[in-house]
Design a protein around this nucleic acid. Structure first.
Length: 263
DNA sequence: TCGATTTGACCAGA
DNA sequence: TCTGGTCAAATCGA
């Protein structure tokens, strides 16, 4: 009983953090968009605001990872040890790594590949039999420098509206999330920033005055120059042990370029 | 030229 | 035996 309460509390906490992270992401997009519109007036202020938002984003991501790693850290470490053993025993051969059997740290479904405050490097992609789409594999950009073992998988799970499932494994030990690293530099011409296009309007169909993102394009991460198709708006987050089937049905009413915020 | 991405090969768990 | 996960050479782009 008490355990159930603790579990539900933890889930509520996690949901709140995810909510905060999504809002920070949206705020970041607004900041970037505003800066592009009024470059001269805001050029002295907006970089600080943007930097602050990015730090908030990283903080949310780290908190989520820590929250979800409490019960998986041990198995995750074991997994890493296994991987080291297998690779050290036969380093000269390609692909000599054991399949991951450890539970993911956490998982999120989104219709954009939003920034999570960390620098990722793509190391592979593969088509899986359970999906018509490719799954992309990312590891921390600081894996070699700081032996950071965080990895994530991005799987497209739905065509229209586009929906992506990002699954995180392990947690960042590189500490890079707490400092300003080159991938989140504030030069205005970065691919991530320049790719953002966001605007708000009222929903005339439902008389809803909540903000609506009318169009947005995004790169998966600032560090990435991957050629991605244009994608739209954050939709939801869902933890791995939740019922996953809800993610696709919730958005049937959304048009290609619309999102209704819950706040 | 250097760093990031792509892609085929390889290994091992299921 | 099949398939997911990873490596590393090839390729691409700034």
């Amino acid at each position: 009983m008490e355990n159930n309460n603790e579990v539900s509390k933890a889930k509520m906490m996690e949901q709140e953090i995810m909510r905060g992270r999504d809002m920070a992401n949206q705020l970041l997009q607004v900041v970037v968009d505003s800066r592009n519109e009024e470059e001269i007036e805001k050029s002295t202020v907006m970089p600080y605001a943007e930097d602050a938002v990015r730090k908030v984003l990283r903080s949310f991501t780290n908190t989520l990872l820590l929250l979800n790693n409490e019960d998986t850290r041990e198995s995750s470490c074991n997994s890493n040890n296994k991987k080291k053993k297998s690779s050290s025993s036969n380093k000269s051969q390609k692909g000599c790594h054991k399949r991951k059997s450890v539970a993911p740290s956490w998982q999120t479904d989104s219709s954009i590949l939003c920034e999570d405050g960390h620098a990722w490097r793509k190391y592979g992609q593969k088509k899986t039999i359970n999906s018509n789409y490719l799954r992309s594999y990312y590891k921390c950009s600081y894996k070699n420098e700081k032996d950071c073992k965080a990895i994530k998988h991005v799987q497209r799970i739905q065509e229209d509206p586009p929906l992506y499932r990002t699954t995180y494994y392990g947690h960042h030990t590189c500490k890079c999330s707490l400092i300003t690293y080159p991938h989140t530099r504030l030069e205005p011409a970065s691919s991530f920033e320049s790719s953002m296009l966001l605007s708000f309007s009222s929903d005339h169909n439902t008389n809803n005055t909540l903000p609506v993102i009318t169009k947005q394009e995004a790169q998966p991460f600032p560090s990435s120059s991957t050629k991605q198709e244009p994608m739209e708006v954050v939709v939801s987050n869902d933890r791995i042990d939740h019922n996953q089937s809800s993610s696709s049905n919730d958005y049937d009413l959304l048009s290609d370029y619309e999102l209704y915020f819950n706040y």
